[in-house]
Write a protein that binds this DNA or RNA. Sequence first.
DNA 1: TTGTAAGCGTTATCAA
DNA 2: TTGATAACGCTTACAA
Lengths: 340, 340
Amino acid sequence: MKRITIYDVAKEADVSLATVSRVINDSNVVREDTRNRVQEAIEKLGYKPNAIAQGLALSKTTTISIVMSEKLLAYNTKILNGLMDVAKIYNYNIMFHTTSKGISKMQDVIESIIKSRVDGVILFNDNFTEDEMEVLHEYQIPMVVVGARFEGKKDENVGNVYVDFERLAYDLVRDLIEQGVDDITLMEDRLNLSMMKQLKKGIEKAFEDAGKNFEGYISYGDGYKSSYAFFKDYFKDHKPAKFNMAFRDSQAIAVMNAAAEAGFHSPEDLQIVSVLDSKYLNMVRPRISSYNIPEYDMGAISMRLLTKMLVSDRDQDENRNIEISYTPIPRDTTKEELFY
Amino acid sequence: MKRITIYDVAKEADVSLATVSRVINDSNVVREDTRNRVQEAIEKLGYKPNAIAQGLALSKTTTISIVMSEKLLAYNTKILNGLMDVAKIYNYNIMFHTTSKGISKMQDVIESIIKSRVDGVILFNDNFTEDEMEVLHEYQIPMVVVGARFEGKKDENVGNVYVDFERLAYDLVRDLIEQGVDDITLMEDRLNLSMMKQLKKGIEKAFEDAGKNFEGYISYGDGYKSSYAFFKDYFKDHKPAKFNMAFRDSQAIAVMNAAAEAGFHSPEDLQIVSVLDSKYLNMVRPRISSYNIPEYDMGAISMRLLTKMLVSDRDQDENRNIEISYTPIPRDTTKEELFY
DNA sequence: TTGTAAGCGTTATCAA
DNA sequence: TTGATAACGCTTACAA
């Protein structure tokens, strides 16, 4: 079956293809009755404009690339939904790219982004290097980095929507120290080293400001299983730290379970906070405290920012760096006076 | 900055654009030294072929659409990763579409799929209607439906990669009844009504075969919160069913928590199975039994099937319906003799 | 208000 | 082995 083109519609409606083009683009210079005639022809033939040809003619694809690491995908579905919804509102299509160790390196992803001539890119702040960014930069593809603070080179073509994890950690730990708690542990999250670095920096600064030295950074394998195994072993001859900071739910649950099975209970023996919230923190017993970070909104805001960047005159200097606020969610694993 | 085109490269290398096209497409009819000359020009100018123009010229976009409901996204990241990896291997780009109640209806998504002239579509078996499918059908876009069995119209353009949830439920319940357990509950999952229906059908069949009638279908609101609230209330004046089947982790955890807080403990007072596995089932106490369904593989297989369909001569009758097997994962919430 | 024709950046056919 | 040139399906001056 031959694909219907604009020519077929033109012939059917007995007009030129220019006129057809005008009606599908809602140009208002076309007379009512010819518009109707064209519409009928479109309906009758089931014509759908070829977006590829439009893209070529307009040098504009109305599609945006989103790139995220495979590992992180499971933790960022809310942000993704925010991105998707706003993209939909502005009628952008989404090209979705994932990066992973073996199979799809950042380099290849960027290559295919450039080739597909997308109008813009959303990047999850993750383990991409500045060199890799550089390429997108050269090709002047507008992009916004979402997640943590982006430290790389910036100009009017790059935006950043982020949570200030460094400050979050700093504020919390400063308060803890003020209250006399300095037995603090930060559990490494290898999925998210860039955010880890910022948390660590914040904690170290708080310790430094109190004239102390932070030595509670614990590093072990990936995922729940290895964290759990680590702590099962660890608690054989160690007591838990008074205050335990994890980045994600599974780590927090891992310490909690291992501790409980070693006879240490939260919050009396150890307090626990997961920085990222998840519904599962509310399902385990005791319920684990965390921070509320409006993830869906982060996605929505990021996409909105990008669409703004795509239409705005370059000199217009709106703010391309948007900080997202967070609020503590105290549950059972923290004491009231320390986490609120 | 003007975008570099094939003409620029041709001029730089002092050849015709046809020759440049040949070298970027690895045509082997081009002489070694001119190939090198062209390659150098490409490097020098940083030329990247315009995939849009290629798509137009070839009537082939080498991109595939994936469509999934927003609600389900969080539960299907593994399948998605499987899809992405295989797409990457075959060099397909991915257009990602989500559907949701208000903002992006299936209809619009299909519209944009047709317009963007993707080569094929992966659909998560969900709440799309046959009418909606019909459109893709008319436009002869190859597609594979992944998840549950697809009941709609099929021809050589549609494949299906699925788990036979009806049989899963049937087998389990038949065994249970044989062992004398017929006090069984199935908790509705509104996120996934098509799978629910199949589970229910399987259970009913098993009851029917035993000359009994299944009346244990429980329907309540969405998500953990409402399930938990429902059971908190329910257990005030009801005892839990002997055997409780949930579709996802949060529902299973909801019954378990509510029951525990009402003084009923698993597995003695109530056995619990979540059909879909998740790591969280292993993190709660007691650990909840489930089924192992190779989700990543389902994605990988689906994408592989689609790519096959895209290249194969239509008459070639390979199997386009692939059943995925599952195995029980007994944990703490089931008794050994009943779930293995 | 409508039509003609050039252009978007490729690939592919045909000649040279 | 290379080069002209006609598609591919659309948008958009410019002319009528």
